[in-house]
Design a protein around this nucleic acid. Structure first.
Length: 807
RNA sequence: GCCGCUGUGAUGAAAUUGGCAGACAUACGGGACUUAGAAUCCCGCGGUAGAGAUACCGUAACGGUUCAAAUCCGUUCAGCGGCACCA
């Protein structure tokens, strides 16, 4: 078979018949199969794309044959840094390079032969799309879920530009290697923290990899503790957050983050110089240094004191940058005896260490950070762990000095980027009215083409006067636009909704259409998005739901991560490793079906692994053998119809394969599914070698075989389907369903064990029940011989598996 | 440092979730057909001992639970991924 010609032929036929376009009128149950859309890079489709899209498409095709109305769209996550960086390097405008790249990739994706519904295509850099991304921003703003505040950004002093987190590699600029510093700019945020609790609890009901759920859980980082108020001699009140309020009697000092508003206020005159110097010093330190655990702790005494509300003791107040202003209250109570960090700090600055917790088992070695028994804590002595914390927290609440509190590690999502190639933030800054959102009817705020995007310290858009100068929608006076663009993760946080209604120019999507298609039934993509895209998309979905646009809160019911295909050397494929494998030559030589099938067979889908092409030739031969065998068998005339042992065996193999392959396809266990197909082909060949055969059964089996294989080798199977004289597309046919009767054999092989050691295998009638099996086994001569007159104490029978005699 | 995952032949991997370890392939070895084989077909293929039937050992290492462990529990080692002063 000329595979390349055959691929072209069927791709054309499918397209002509609009065979892959979703039919909204169908009464079949819908199945939304989605693969993460790709970034249009200049290079060709790489093995990773193929590995993501090929097998996932086979799944979609399988579901179609199983009777679902499948929707499988594809699009491009087209805004973003790489295009802009490429432009800076070469001078080619991002819009132009992106357009060309999308054209090439689209062509390649079509050549792959996946059943993408190109009618639903979405490109996030097009006005007709980002208009609605901006709309989304405005809705969040209206709801109070988008706000502005000053925040540190990554700044490269050499390139003179803001960097995205992805561009900071080990604390240095990805491009020039200069150490990145912190710089405070006013930034836009989305209040994802508002949904922290639901983002956490919603995970339980999802059919997602446990690993990903755990990562999101840790990222959200719920912590249950207690806030306690310490009153300063100045009258100011310092609230601290702690998860160990049972150690409150061991507090020997209180620490504020250097940015804490009270830091300057409470400082005494003698300490003022030292404190100012310390604050100046720490503000210079960059994020990376500051967050490093190995860094030695530093701090400074403020000269001020406060009072422990429970013990009444006076304790000093320090500033130290090991306390984060952005978490909890930005202040902590230090208990050196029961916290490693406080212990280290107290040791360095010679502060008292007071033990108030005792180990339940063995001696207590300080710092002792586990749960223990309270000591030296007045009326609380003797209490342990959770109960102790409960009682202390209640007491604090009773005193009006705080109480239980839940905190999350999750921070709000910083969405503004001082970059060019993104959706402009639809906001106007008016000298009279302040921040004014652009009215929805004026959307999109179009991204201008003629812009100097080479970095020189300013946001690229800020240099474009035509863009920046506008009038205030509220007062009509002169005003300036916001020069920032939105993080590309904003664009990708709702694209799966737009697929349902991609050409709507009245609204982001028709609510009814989305209700019908969403949520996504199966989402396939890389695990690297666990705490970014997947979390953002969940947040946006919940926010839109609460605004009344959606009737569901979780966008992706089932999630599958394909593994990573590494270079042959076991490293991640990259230019710097020089280990990139291109699919093209393989497709040229063996065809896209063979390549896809090899990807499915050679790797465990969710594991991936180093590339190795040893098996691809074998897959190609497998296809050749199928072709040869099937075409030969289909020429047989149907006359003989014996049905005995061999026929039963073939029928068993056929139905066994149907059962297992169906299960494996459903579970994304593609390697075993293909293995079962090979087994079935082996059974067919074996039967075909007989002199007398039931050609009716054989031909029916062969047809089932083709139907089973079709999702995994679509062009190849369409062609054979036609060649054996069938009408219409093979994908219009139903996937075979096993006949359970044929799976029941007269006899089943059992393993025979004596004292858990296998002594032999025997065939036992399948209909036998426990006792019958036992009697049957004990009656065997070989067993009697082995038992040698010993008494059988116990007989364990595992139906259909084994018999274990304990003597 | 903390959290999570993984560890099975020469190789990619299977194993109905506690029930015959190594399915299905690749590589390798042997044979058939052939002028020839990188084509096709057949046979073998975890290790050790043995001519052989067979026996013993074997799922990173050690220990435990069980009639039965790759699978469950504990300790250790190795690799990968995530988080990284979150009080």
């Amino acid at each position: 078979m000329d595979r390349k010609a055959v691929e072209k032929k069927w791709q054309l036929k499918w397209e002509k018949a609009k065979f892959h376009n979703f039919n909204p009128k169908s009464d079949k149950p819908k199945e939304y199969v989605l693969e993460m859309f790709s970034y249009p890079s200049g290079a060709k489709l790489h093995v990773g794309h193929w590995y993501n899209y090929g097998p996932a498409d086979s799944y979609a095709r399988f579901k179609r044959m199983k009777g679902y109305n499948v929707f499988q769209p594809m699009g491009f996550d087209a805004f973003g840094l790489p295009a802009e960086n490429y432009a800076i390097k070469t001078g080619v405008h991002p819009k132009d390079s992106t357009k060309t790249n999308i054209e090439t990739m689209e062509k390649q994706l079509r050549a792959m032969g996946a059943m993408f519904d190109w009618n639903a295509e979405v490109k996030t850099c097009e006005e007709k799309y980002y208009k609605w991304t901006q709309w989304l921003f405005l809705q969040l703003y209206k709801k109070g879920l988008a706000y502005r505040k000053e925040a540190p950004v990554n700044w490269c002093p050499s390139c003179n530009t803001v960097l995205a987190n992805e561009q900071v590699v080990e604390g240095a600029c990805e491009r020039c290697g200069t150490t990145v510093v912190r710089k405070n700019l006013t930034q836009w945020f989305f209040k994802i923290t508002e949904y922290a609790e639901e983002l956490l609890s919603g995970l339980d009901g999802l059919d997602w990899p446990e690993k990903t759920k755990t990562m999101q859980k840790n990222w959200i980082g719920k912590s249950t503790g207690c806030e306690i108020e310490f009153e300063c001699d100045t009258g100011d009140k310092i609230r601290v957050y702690t998860t160990r309020c049972d150690t409150v009697f061991g507090v020997t000092y209180v620490v504020l983050a250097p940015e804490h508003p009270l830091a300057q206020k409470i400082t005494t005159d003698e300490q003022r110089d030292a404190v100012n110097a310390y604050i100046a010093e720490t503000s210079k330190a960059n994020e990376i240094d500051r967050l490093s655990t190995t860094r030695e702790k530093t701090g400074v005494f403020t000269g001020a004191y406060c009072t422990n509300p429970l013990s009444g003791k006076k304790i000093p107040i320090y500033l130290a940058d090991y306390v984060l202003y952005s978490y909890g209250t930005g202040a902590v109570m230090a208990v050196p005896a029961h916290d490693e960090r406080d212990f280290e700090f107290a040791t360095k600055y010679d502060l008292p260490i007071v033990q108030v917790i005792e180990s339940r088992s063995g001696p207590t070695k300080l710092p002792f950070c586990e749960d223990g028994i309270m000591v030296g804590s007045l009326g609380f002595d003797g209490l342990y762990g959770e109960e102790a914390r409960e009682k202390v927290a209640n007491e604090i609440a009773k005193l009006g000095k705080g109480g239980k509190k839940v905190n999350y590690r999750l921070r709000d999502w910083l969405v503004s980027r001082q970059r060019y190639w993104g959706a402009p933030i639809p906001v106007v800054h008016c000298p009279n009215c302040g921040i004014v959102p652009v009215p929805e009817k004026n959307l999109p705020v179009a991204l201008p083409y003629e812009v100097e995007f080479r970095p020189d310290g300013k946001s690229p858009l800020e240099k474009c006067e035509e863009f920046m100068n506008t009038t205030c929608p509220q007062c009509g006076g002169e005003a300036r636009r916001d020069p920032d663009t939105l993080d590309t993760f904003v664009c990708s946080s709702w694209y799966f909704l737009r697929y349902a209604d991609p050409d709507n120019d009245k609204e982001p999507f028709d609510v009814e259409k989305v209700k019908k298609l969403l949520p996504v039934d199966t989402y396939v993509g890389g695990a690297e998005h666990a705490c970014m895209h997947l979390l953002y998309a969940r947040f946006i979905t919940k926010a839109l739901r609460d605004m009344g646009y959606l009737n569901f809160g979780e966008p992706f019911k089932r999630l599958i991560h394909q593994g990573v295909i590494m270079g042959p050397d076991g490293n991640r494929m990259s230019k710097s490793h020089g280990n990139i494998v291109s699919p093209d030559e393989y497709i040229e030589e063996y065809g896209s079906d063979a390549f896809r099938l090899y990807l499915m067979f050679g790797f465990s889908y969710t594991e991936g692994g180093p590339w190795n092409d040893d098996g691809i030739k074998a897959i190609s031969k497998f296809l050749d053998k199928i072709e040869k065998t099937i075409l030969k068998i289909m020429t047989y005339s149907e006359k003989n119809a014996p049905y005995s042992t061999e026929e039963k065996a073939l029928d068993y193999a056929r139905n066994f394969a149907i059962q297992k392959i169906t299960r494996d396809m459903q579970n994304f266990s593609f390697n075993t599914a293909v293995a079962r197909m090979m087994e079935l082909l082996n059974a067919i060949t074996k039967y075909d070698a007989l002199d007398v055969k039931n050609t009716t059964l054989l031909k029916a089996t062969v047809k089932d075989f083709l139907l089973l294989l079709a999702p995994c080798a679509p062009h190849f199977c369409e062609e054979l389907w036609e060649q054996i004289g069938e009408k219409g597309f093979i994908f219009e046919r139903s996937y075979p369903v096993e006949n359970p009767e044929k799976l029941v054999l007269d006899e089943t092989e059992y393993a025979l064990q004596i004292n858990s050691k296998i002594i032999s295998r025997v065939m036992i009638p399948s209909s036998f029940k426990q006792e019958e099996i036992q009697d049957f086994v004990l009656g065997l001569d070989s067993v009697k011989e082995k038992l040698d007159g010993k008494e059988v104490k116990k007989c364990i029978v595992v139906q259909g598996r084994l018999v274990n005699l304990i003597v």
